[in-house]
Design a protein around this nucleic acid. Structure first.
Length: 485
RNA sequence: GGUAUCGUGGCCGAGUGGCUAGGCAGUGGUCUGCAAAACCAUCUACAGCAGUUCGAAUCUGCUCGAUACCUCCA
């Protein structure tokens, strides 16, 4: 199998990837908390991991991809209530209605962006029993304590024998004098401690029985429990957004370390943020844009609508680990580039083979694999694909030629990288309609006749009127063609 | 205050010690009835200062600036 390099946040360097079991990969990615519509920044993370998943599959690995849905336990800021519960109260819904509503939204959006579904999509509320068992284990190890029906993880005690901060490189602060505002109400021994179980207040709707209180699990615990359950106590890849690195992933490592006595994950991958107006998109600050606003064009920042494929292309033009800034002009240029790429693929279907090849298709394929195998470098891949686009257009005009096997190989390359790995789909499916094709053939023929007889008024009329309804005429050396814009 | 990442041409965005990334926009040309598309050519660059080196956008130090995390966020 081809060598693959992955930037491992845990080691802070690029490493050659070696799965625990040859040919198999266990991958866990933190999913959304379904208390609201996901915004485009959330989508970026899932698209990045979709691309990663697709490439791993393409390389021939059997991948078990687990991506959770957080439907309980995610606390709001400075509050004892969780996000789902808060939303349920605001919308006067059952918590599970909130969960259902936004889970459906999540899935619909990801479908628009052509994401493959994960192998398993577990929920926090479906694993309450496992979470309670894990808390018991941690309590028995003496790394957690019970206060007023809630259970907290003792970070300082853990840090005596283990390294809390191994992932985020944070150095925990001993002593409370360094902390900013210590919440007087808090049951915690230290502000760094985090909740494993919270006792439910009277008005808290989501609640389960436990040995300590009627309450609900802490946010960090679900990922530990579910990744362990489905991928084992040690697995290959754990991913998530950069903003989850600390404290969420740090806490996951600590919990798993106490429960299973081994480091849970070999490769930690963190995808970077999508910025809007120079700042991270965020639900809580309102600096965000919804996927639906992109394809309906309802956001004031956008001059027009953009298809999901265009925004997917826009994201793939940046490396997953870089911050990416969204703007109308960036989407506009992405759209042009995307159409150029997709048009070339259509053109490729019309190319006929020649006797000799004037271009090294093998070298192109090698470059594409090299780019992807170097920490999933999609911008470099796309640069190479545009090299292929240039060749395709030259093939059409006769400046380059390919023999039959090279031509087939070029088609395969585009199929693999554009469709299978980058996950782009042409949004011009309507071009394939037989009726439309036949009518357009006639129209082009009539216009061609008009041109031949010098009737350019008619020729231009046809071209202009078609342009108004979104069809572009392209006159080439060997005749005219058309496409839906 | 702590931790981390980053500062690349008109814009977006790769590269990380010597060899043109790429896309969009611009300019010149080919083609065209004209235009568009396409193709060819081409311009604008590595935040600043000092150091290491035969050679640095790439390594080191400092300065300035930006962002993220440290309290919920993909």
């Amino acid at each position: 199998m081809r060598e693959l390099k992955i930037y491992n946040t845990l080691k802070a360097e690029k490493e050659v990837f070696k799965p625990i079991t040859e040919g198999f990969i266990g991958m866990y990615v933190c999913g959304p908390t379904v208390y609201d519509n996901i915004h485009l920044g959330n989508v970026r993370t899932f698209i990045s991991f979709d691309m990663i998943y697709r490439y791993l599959l393409h390389l021939g690995y059997k991948v078990r991809y687990v991506r959770n849905i957080t439907d309980a336990g995610h606390l709001t800021d400075h509050n004892t209530e969780d996000k789902i519960t808060t939303k349920a109260r605001l919308e006067q819904l059952e918590p599970m209605e909130v969960v259902q509503k936004y889970t459906v939204d999540f899935h619909e959006v990801l479908k628009q962006y052509n994401l493959l579904p994960p192998s398993i999509e577990p929920t926090a509320t479906g694993h309450i029993v496992e979470q309670i068992e894990a808390i018991q284990t941690i309590l028995e190890s003496g790394i957690a304590y019970v206060v007023n029906g809630s259970v907290y993880f003792d970070v300082l005690k853990y840090n005596e024998t283990e390294n809390y901060g191994i992932l985020s490189k944070q150095v925990i602060e001993y002593g409370i004098e360094n902390t900013r505002e210590l919440d007087g109400q808090s049951d915690k021994k230290n502000p760094q401690d985090f909740a494993l179980w919270k006792k439910a207040e009277e008005n808290h709707i989501q609640r389960w029985n436990s040995p300590w209180s009627v309450g609900f699990p802490g946010w960090h615990l679900e990922c530990t429990v579910m990744s362990t359950k489905y991928l084992g106590s040690q697995f290959d890849i754990h991913g998530g957004g950069m903003d989850l690195k600390f404290p969420h992933h740090e806490c996951e490592i600590a919990q798993a370390q106490v429960c299973n006595h081994k480091t849970p994950v070999n490769y930690w991958m963190h995808t970077n943020m999508l910025n809007l107006n120079g700042k991270k998109m965020s639900k809580s600050t309102g600096n965000s844009i919804l996927p639906s606003e992109i394809y309906t064009g309802t956001n004031p920042l956008l001059s027009k609508t953009y298809s999901p494929s265009v925004s997917r292309f826009f994201m793939m033009q940046a490396h997953y680990s870089s911050i990416l800034d969204l703007s109308d002009s960036a989407l506009l240029s992405a759209e042009k580039g995307f159409l150029k790429l997709m048009n070339a693929i259509e053109t490729l279907e019309q190319i006929s083979a020649a006797d000799i090849s004037t271009y090294d298709v093998n070298a192109l394929e090698e470059k594409c694999y090299a780019a992807m195998s170097d920490d999933f470098n999609t911008p470099i891949l796309i640069a190479h694909l545009f090299d292929g686009v240039r060749i395709i257009n030259s093939l059409k005009s006769g400046k380059e030629s390919l023999n039959i096997s090279d031509l087939e190989q070029l088609k395969t390359i585009f199929n693999i990288f554009v469709t299978d790995i980058l996950g782009f789909i042409s949004h011009k499916e309507s071009n394939g309609n037989d009726l439309t094709n036949n009518i357009m053939e006639l129209v082009l023929q009539l216009r061609g006749n008009a041109k031949k007889s010098g009737d350019f008024d008619t020729a231009d009329l046809i071209r202009n009127e078609l342009d108004k309804v979104g069809v572009q005429i392209k006159d080439g050396r060997e005749g005219s063609s058309w496409e839906v814009k």
